[in-house]
Amino acid sequence: MSLIPWRNKKEDGGAGQLTPLGEFRGEMNRLFESFLRDGFNFGERATGLPSLLSNWGPAVDVEETDKQIRVRAEIPGVKAEDLEISIRGDALVIAGEKKGSEERSEGGYYYQERRFGSFRREVTLPTAVDPDDVRAEYANGILTVELKKSLEALPKKIAVKAT
């Protein structure tokens, strides 16, 4: 289901004529609105590309505690074995493929809102982590990755001597 955004005539510079300034203002308004709506999630709607072409990535939460970093991603409808998780430099890379439901369809779609295709998301980690101590779990469509901070990244207390 694709809806064409209704545009105010005023944005077009009035009387349906596109003046360069009116066009620019309209474009800025749209960008601003899409930012208010979607934030930094520059997905299909913001780029105008169909989901198969745009390399979409799942939404993530990153939490930091003293000793570890936990990354959670909403990836419904993927098999655990189809998820690929790796650490590259200072980034955690989550990649995989979500299969569409078209193979079950014989008469076409009424609604198609879910995204599918291959996805990839790189999350920059705030500190160095131990690449050998990473735990990943996938349950009910949520991927949870727990990374331990490396020893060098842990805070160290420095004693101050009174002289």
Partner: peptide
């Protein structure tokens, strides 16, 4: 987000 598909005998 939902998909609704139709097959011969049912809607999914």
């Amino acid at each position: 987000h939902v998909d609704i598909l139709e097959s011969k005998d049912e809607l999914i």
